[in-house]
Amino acid sequence: MSDLPDASGADESFDWLGHAGQVHVRLFRGAPSRKANDTLLVFFHPGGFVVDDTEASDPCLRVLADACEVNILAPCYTLAPERPFPAAVEDAHAVLTQAVRQRTKLGWKGTHLFVGGVEAGGNLAAVSALVCRDRQGPDLAGQILVMPMVDASLHCASMRCAADEDATRKLARDVERSYRLYLPNPADRLHPYASPLHASRLGNLPPALIVHTEGDPLSDEGHAYADKLRQAGNEVAQITLPPPDDILDNKERCSLTADDPCVTAMRQFLIDNR
């Protein structure tokens, strides 16, 4: 494991020991402030469990760190099909555990730990909340799920409709392929650590912010997961974003600006749960 740099420096990349090997991690420091030192957001990248999308996510995470005054830890978790489920889940939990142990070197006081992610990363964030509860730590202050993939059965209406529409058929097929490679054992598709939407125990979880995009194949499962979390007694905030001009443009789907409604919602969620 490499040593981390002094917390007063610029953004840094380093390697940590994951569940079964090295995990590359990048630290984005928010503007120096008490809030940034109090709060750490571990954010998992998209990429359908099969693509390392950390580099493409860097500009968005830099905007988010600055706008929300938060330090962000972005790990590159294990990818399928070389190492399928539950390898990425175990890497995610290993990173959260290491973050707590290495908090001084991260420039973090260890006060508030959030988890978040986009699409496949949103799945890992939601699952991390379940795993941290089940394994009794680390304690999470909240979870930020952006267009999360939480239903490996692909039964939600928006996903089924997307498969029949020309504009969204490719996206639906990409999601199906990702799950097929990530979950080669069909029985795992209903495992709560693979499909949080199908978890039978959703109580005692940290507050959640769930972000949907109109017309996105993943929208209905995000809405359904929010409903199930509420029914289980958890606090849930939701925001629905308008569809991008070209829903097939993955860069547009995952882009952020400082005045983006998604960033505003994240900032308020972090403030409310610190």
Rank of each mutant, 00 (worst) to 15 (best):
G203A: 14
P196G: 03
T240S: 13
D216K: 07
H212K: 04
P242A: 09
T240M: 11
Q231R: 12
G203F: 07
P243F: 07
A199Q: 00
A237C: 13
L241A: 00
D216M: 05
H198N: 11
A226Y: 00
E235D: 13
R201E: 14
P242E: 09
D220I: 00
Y193G: 02
P242C: 06
Y193S: 01
P242D: 10
N204I: 09
A232K: 06
Q231C: 10
P192A: 12
D216N: 12
H191D: 15
K228N: 11
L197C: 01
L241Q: 10
Q238M: 14
D220A: 14
A199E: 02
A208Y: 08
L205I: 08
I239A: 09
A224K: 01
L190C: 12
L218R: 03
A226V: 02
P242N: 10
S219A: 13
P206T: 10
S200R: 15
G203I: 05
E221Y: 01
P196Y: 05
S200G: 14
L241K: 03
G233N: 09
E235L: 14
Q231F: 08
T213R: 05
V211T: 11
S195V: 01
N204P: 05
A237P: 04
R201A: 14
R201D: 15
G222Y: 03
N234A: 05
R201G: 07
P192N: 11
V236E: 03
E214F: 08
D220Q: 11
P217S: 04
G233I: 09
P244S: 11
L197Y: 03
A199H: 06
L190V: 15
P207F: 01
P217V: 01
P192C: 12
G203Y: 04
D220P: 03
L218G: 06
P243S: 14
I239G: 04
V236S: 06
P196V: 07
R230H: 02
P196H: 11
I239V: 15
P192R: 14
S195D: 06
S200W: 06
A199S: 15
R201C: 11
H212P: 05
P217F: 06
P217A: 10
S219P: 05
A194F: 05
I239R: 00
N234T: 05
R201V: 13
T213W: 02
L197H: 05
L205S: 07
H212G: 09
P206V: 00
Q238P: 01
H212L: 13
Y225R: 04
A237N: 14
P196T: 06
A237Y: 12
D216V: 08
P244C: 09
D216H: 13
L202R: 07
A226T: 06
S200Y: 10
G233M: 09
I239S: 10
H198C: 09
P242L: 02
A199D: 06
A199G: 13
D227R: 12
I210K: 02
P242Q: 10
S195K: 04
T213D: 05
